[in-house]
Design a protein around this nucleic acid. Structure first.
Lengths: 247, 247
DNA sequence: CGTTTGGTTGAAATGTGTCAAACTTTGTGG
DNA sequence: CCACAAAGTTTGACACATTTCAACCAAACG
């Protein structure tokens, strides 16, 4: 039980970033039966077309939701970090409309739909919190759509970096303006709807403009104000409270 | 009461397209206190930054969710039709992250958050249905992101037309392969992330390829198979059941 | 009937894609 | 621990989808 509480703690932290639970509710979440599994890098955890009977939480590492078009082009919809439940929507959608793959080696925890529904029945406020979570996901989709539809590559990349570090910081997974960036340039390309080559060019520009430094997977924001202006970033859509947002 | 039932009936039809309600549940939904109001064309019903205390359902007409970037570029996220509740997410998100405007004159019905929560408390399955509705919205966002991020203008437009008529037909709002298309070319442009001029050229191509006919606001699909291939359209993400999907 | 809004078209500019090659880093097995 | 392979990054040249600008036309509307 203590073991399980340890495993699920990033999930609790994430849920608590949006919703205030009672001690009893937290205990109920921590008591969820969870099956921990290690997943290698670049593996699908679930696939489009699956009819899963369980959700999974990311206990450590990063993952991404994506879809592949009929002609083989890939679009990422979201990048996920520790504490998130990327396929929470599978709880209600019979057939999965998208796949989710690891970006790094991950520890994931599987939780059956049945256990989640049971939890929701006895604790209606937890159901409300899970719904809220999926609504925030929807808000982020709207922002990504705006980003890809209306901004040029340079602004898209700046926006993505702003969001990424803001989300990490809101969960205490990054300090200051420096963090890990676990995606390859090709993955960034498929998140922003541009080519890999152009990602490289844009990164070069962001560097030479003194906005960021990116060496290997280490991202450092050198000019936060400049980057937020370039990406027209306003964290409102992330639904963080004051404390979690960057000043 | 009979009057109200009449008003809310498109909403019931929409909810029932995803979820099977009991007679009691349907009666409870029909009994929701609803304030009907006519809205002129091209008016915001709610605006980004609002903190609404009520949702609105579209009783007749069409509307669209959108956002405007810092430099004044507009992105539509969804087109809404009669029966939908475009700002259902406002039930949980304190501050609205997007605006919703009418595309045609509309009859809308306002329902207070309080009344909806009360309904959800006494009828947990209705809460589940509303959550499901927002999850399907999320699924559609993912598809739009894929459309805008990975397809060329021609395919994007084809995909949009396929989705539009499929959704209309699933609610019995269109017959065969012909329907009303209430958006201007400039609005289509902002939904697809392309310029108005290019929308015009793409429409010209779709016409000359014999896929569609579009005169005024009357859209007719002349070659459904061809259009679905051009738009790589697979209605899975709309979560319709067999009967509602086009054969 | 004039005014406004939306649609249509051409020409030139440009952001981004594609192709190809070289370079660097990472990971792995000998 | 090295050697090699594989994966990821960087760069240049060229192609092209789409944008921008501008003008004109058609339809809707008061």
């Amino acid at each position: 039980m203590l073991e399980e509480l340890h495993h699920i703690s990033p999930v609790l932290r994430k849920l608590e970033s949006l919703f205030a639970f009672s001690g009893q509710e937290k205990a109920a979440i921590a008591a969820l039966p969870i099956q921990v599994q290690a997943i290698r890098i670049d593996q699908d955890v679930v696939r489009e077309g699956d009819r899963p009977s369980r959700c999974f939480a990311i206990l450590s590492g990063s993952a991404a939701t994506y879809k592949v078009t009929a002609v083989g082009r890939r679009q990422f919809h979201a990048f996920h970090i520790a504490g998130e439940i990327p396929d929470l929507h599978s709880l209600q959608l019979g057939v999965l409309d998208c796949s989710i793959a690891t970006l790094t080696p991950c520890q994931v925890g599987f939780i059956t739909h049945e256990a989640i529904w049971q939890l929701c029945c006895t604790h209606p406020r937890i159901l409300k919190a899970l719904w809220l979570q999926t609504l925030v996901d929807g808000s982020i989709y709207r922002e990504w759509l705006t980003n890809v539809g209306q901004r040029q590559a340079y602004g898209r990349m700046a926006h993505l970096f702003c969001e990424w570090i803001t989300r990490l910081r809101s969960l205490g997974l990054a300090r200051e303006y420096s963090c890990d960036l676990p995606m390859t340039q090709s993955q960034l390309a498929d998140a922003l709807g541009i080519s890999t080559v152009h990602v490289n060019r844009v990164l070069k520009d962001l560097r030479s403009d003194g906005l960021i430094s990116l060496q290997g997977s280490r991202l450092e924001i050198l000019d936060w104000d400049g980057l937020t202006i370039a990406g027209e970033f306003d964290p409102l859509y992330l639904c963080l409270n004051e404390r979690q947002a960057l000043s």
